[in-house]
Design a protein around this nucleic acid. Structure first.
Lengths: 162, 162
DNA sequence: TTATATGCAAACAGTTTGCATGGGT
DNA sequence: ACCCATGCAAACTGTTTGCATATAA
C-alpha cells in the first residue's frame, strides 16, 4: 500500500526505491519525533536491506523537499516529524523525554511583531518548553505515568490558544 | 586585575589556575555568544599555554556552577554567555549569523501558563527567532551590512515587551 | 540504458577522556 | 605534599561522503 509520504515523494518526482518506500512508510506511521537511529531501527525491521547512510540521505532529501522537518530538542541528535499539522510547539518532559505538542495561536503573531519591531522579517522560529510533570494531587494517577522513562513516546495534545 | 567571572569562580571555591583566569577574563569581556573555538582563539591570544581541551572542560565546569549558560543556535556548535542579564531571547540573523538579544516580559508568563495547562511545571524554555533584516526603504544602506557574513558580531537591544 | 540511489567504510566536526605531568593551595 | 587541573592525543558520537555496484524510470 502506498503511504502518505510515499505519495508526496511521487508527487515531487522522486525516484521510489525499495528503501525509500520503507522509510516513507515508517515516517508516515510515526506519530512521534524519531531520530535517525530510531528510524533506522524501524525501517530495518520491515526490510533489512537498508543502511543508516540511506536513512540519513533520505531524511535530508525529504527535508529539502519540505516533506519532513528537522527538530532539535537537545541531546545532540536531530529528530524528525512530517510537515503537515499546522504550526505547533513542543513541551519536553525532562524526566521521561516524552514530547508533547501543543498549539498557541497568539505566539506566531507575537513573534512576528517582535521581529518587525527589531527591523527583521521573521523567517522561522522555535520555542520549546522543558518541564516536569506536576505532582498530582491525591492518588488520581495518570493514564501513562512515570513508568517507562527514556524512550520518548510522544503524544499530541489538542487545545488551542490559552 | 580580577575579572567578574574570576570573582564568581573564587566565590564558589574553584581553584584558580592560570588558564582558568584567562578564560574567565575572556568570558567576562565577551558581550556576544562565542563558541568554544572562538573562546580558545581569544584565550590563546592572551596566553598561548591553553589547550582546547581545557576550554571545553572549563566551559562545562562553569556551566555546572551556573556561571555560564550554553546556547544552541543551530550550526552544530554550542555557544556560551555569562549568566547574568535577566531572561532574554535571541533573534538570529540568518544571513549574517549575528545574534540580537531582546526581552519580552509577556513570554515567560505565557509559557508558564501553557505548561501549567498541560499539567507540568515549567523548568526552562527557549525561544529563538530566525529572521532576515528587512530590506530598508530606498538606498539608505545599513551601517554594518551583508559584508562580512559568517562571524557573529552579536549585539544587544533594549526594548521591553511589545 | 542511463542517471540516480545504495552499501560500505572511511572521513569529518564537535566534544570528551585516559594518562602522565604540572601547578595551586 | 597532595590533589586537582592541564596537555596531548586517542576515542566517541552524530553525520557526511567517495566509490563501486545495483536499480528505477
Amino acid at each position: 500500500m502506498e503511504s502518505r509520504i510515499e505519495r508526496l515523494c511521487i508527487d515531487r518526482g522522486l525516484k521510489m526505491t525499495g528503501q525509500r518506500r520503507v522509510i516513507a512508510r515508517v515516517l508516515s506511521e510515526a506519530d512521534d519525533h524519531p531520530d535517525v537511529e530510531e528510524l533506522y531501527r524501524r525501517a530495518t525491521a520491515l526490510d533489512s536491506r537498508i543502511s543508516v547512510a540511506t536513512v540519513y540521505r533520505t531524511v535530508r532529501l525529504l527535508e529539502e523537499k519540505g516533506i519532513l522537518e528537522r527538530r532539535d530538542f537537545g541531546g545532540g541528535r536531530a529528530r524528525y516529524e512530517a510537515t503537515e499539522h499546522g504550526h505547533h510547539y513542543h513541551l519536553i518532559d525532562i524526566d521521561t523525554g516524552r514530547v508533547i505538542e501543543f498549539e498557541d495561536a497568539e505566539h506566531e503573531q507575537l513573534m512576528r511583531q517582535i521581529a518587525t519591531r527589531l527591523g527583521f522579517d521573521l523567517v522561522s522560529h522555535r520555542m520549546e518548553l522543558f518541564a516536569r510533570r506536576r505532582p498530582q494531587g491525591v492518588g488520581q494517577s495518570m493514564g501513562q505515568g512515570a513508568g517507562t522513562a527514556g524512550t520518548a513516546v510522544d503524544e499530541r495534545v489538542a487545545g488551542k490558544g490559552r
